[in-house]
Design a binder for these strands. Structure first.
Lengths: 248, 248
DNA sequence: CGGAGAATTGATATGTCTCAACACTTGTGG
DNA sequence: CCACAAGTGTTGAGACATATCAATTCTCCG
């Protein structure tokens, strides 16, 4: 949660690449717990800087599909997408992640990442190591439990995504997608009614399993019904009730 | 959980209902590790019977959506399906599970189950408790690590399911579904070319996000192409290569 | 035998994809 | 500052796949 002036400039106004890339800071367990919104027991050593941070700029990848597992990544800020790449080369978006989300949970059991993760905007992530030495160091302070709680939450998230993308009609899928985005923004303390989408129509379509044109049409349709206001990636939800009632 | 005689006859035609229902045995850590195909470190007390078993008969539910979390369930034998129930009442199949699969992983972080789990055939499951007392008892014998390894595997499984159901055409989805079933059968040491589906066309359709008629037509089509042989739920795969090449 | 659910198959309606044209935004370089 | 290119987003027309509705057969059990 701490950023000094020069870093902020580097990060947002895109000068000083070298400083950006070589930059390295550390996060505390306290920050991790807050980002995760975890309310379980934890160790007393909450303020030791033990978790390494890493920056990923828009368009760059955090890890690739099949790459050796090197721990979980927790998003400190920024937006990312995860996707699987099919044999034919086509990419399929699995999820859109934001602050507090964890990436790479499938790697714990497989030794390698099962999907590709790339940044939609400039991001900063915190690496959560998941290896023997880490466990030995934290055998009785609750950190282990935090980890499997975190992985379990990923299962829940995926179930939700599954439900969203399995609606009958494309307009309902888009409506649910907007509701999901709205709720997630609200959870982070931002406006539930007004936000900017960080991804392209193509990405949304890939996520919802429809074409980008269908996404565009669905948004235009919701716009004409006065339920939302769309201007490129700027979304204003006029009636969340109507959006939710849209199901049938 | 108690069912009288007449219902039992409905169910499995023969034998000993009372014994079936009241039957209670215990599984060892050794058996759990083998079912999970887990190859990590574990405690020396592998042969103590510490995990309670439970039987679920075809059509019955193991747990309902929203029910208080009471641990993970590992399938010892039988087939189950998990589904979410929408507000409107419609059910959506999330996954089909078989021997060695774990159910309820989303409950760890939520305190309640996020989906409904019911048996397609008679099942026997092993309860893996996930609570503080259990963790205190097994703080340093590797059981905790086994648990989050298990939950991580669920994430992988869900990713695979996601990929299967997001194919463009319905016939490709059905083909991938058959490949998945085939591979899972092979993993359990059964024939990869010949098996019996435990679920209805409606369930398959719900899983793949198409109608039951479309599933039926896709199977008939694959049948006519000589790639598979279908007779109700009996499947024979003549050419796994052709089935896999079907992607395009 | 009779009934209920499961599965197949056909005819039609409907929704989405595909292909195409165009407008808008952004960044680049003259 | 403008021209330009590349990427993004919108909209339309027609082709195609799937949903829907309906009729029939099959299978399993009582």
């Amino acid at each position: 949660m701490f950023v000094n002036n020069s870093q902020a400039q580097v990060f947002h106004a895109n000068s000083e690449v070298r400083e950006f890339d070589l930059h390295c800071e550390w996060s505390t367990l306290n920050e991790v717990v807050q980002l995760l919104q975890y309310h379980g027991p934890c160790s007393a050593e909450m303020h030791k800087p033990i978790f390494r941070r890493r920056r990923v700029r828009a368009g760059q990848t955090l890890f690739l599909m099949g790459q050796a597992f090197s721990g979980l990544y927790l998003i400190r800020h920024g937006n990312m997408k995860t996707a699987i790449t099919h044999a034919e080369g086509s990419e399929h978006v699995m999820s859109f992640s934001m602050q507090g989300d964890v990436l790479g949970a499938e790697g714990v059991c497989q030794q390698h990442y099962g999907c590709q993760c790339s940044a939609l905007l400039d991001c900063e992530v915190i690496r959560l190591p998941v290896d023997d030495s880490f466990f030995n160091d934290h055998s009785d302070d609750g950190v282990g439990r935090l980890l499997y709680w975190t992985i379990s939450r990923e299962v829940s998230r995926q179930q939700l995504a599954y439900a969203i993308t399995h609606a009958a009609k494309s307009e309902i899928r888009v409506a649910r997608f907007l509701i999901e985005q709205s709720e997630r923004h609200a959870t982070l303390g931002h406006s539930a009614k007004r936000f900017t989408l960080p991804m392209t129509r193509r990405d949304i379509g890939s996520y919802l399993n429809v074409t980008l044109e269908t996404v565009s049409r669905a948004l235009s349709s919701l716009n004409q019904l006065q339920i939302i206001d769309v201007a490129n990636r700027e979304i204003v939800i006029h009636s969340l009730d109507q959006l939710q009632a849209y199901e049938g």
